[in-house]
């Protein structure tokens, strides 16, 4: 079990990892994150919604309604500042990893 405080900083990164390539909707993001984490981590529904809401507020993603897949859903699409933010987080993680590794036995 991971402390939620630790992973909270990277929930946005996990979401943007997928949105970087193509728009998606909440459940699909949830499913793909869980799959990518090889079942070792899954997002709570409220956590996912908070993150998406935050990303939208910060202007990193836009939401839109779409029913082309049959069901009317809310999709999220990354934009330019979202991509920049994602890249910043990737660099940040590389740095954190570098530092913390030195303290792990």
């Amino acid at each position: 079990m991971i402390s939620s405080d630790v992973i909270r900083g990277y929930v946005d990164t996990m979401i943007l990892y997928f949105l970087f390539d193509e728009p998606s909707y909440a459940y699909e993001l949830s499913r793909r994150i869980r799959q990518r984490a090889q079942e070792k981590y899954a997002l709570k529904e409220t956590t996912l919604y908070s993150a998406l809401s935050r990303l939208e507020q910060s202007g990193y993603v836009e939401s839109y309604r779409d029913d082309s897949s049959g069901k009317r859903r809310t999709y999220y699409r990354i934009n330019t500042s979202g991509r920049e933010y994602y890249e910043t987080k990737c660099r940040e993680w590389a740095l954190i990893q570098d530092i913390i590794e030195r303290f792990i036995r």
């Binding site: 909707y25 909440a26 459940y27 529904e45 409220t46 996912l48 919604y49 859903r73 809310t74």
Partner: peptide, 13 residues
């Protein structure tokens, strides 16, 4: 909005 989005997510799941 929150309610509708969470409902959508839960129903999909």
């Amino acid at each position: 909005r929150v309610k509708s989005q969470l409902t959508e997510l839960m129903e999909d799941k």
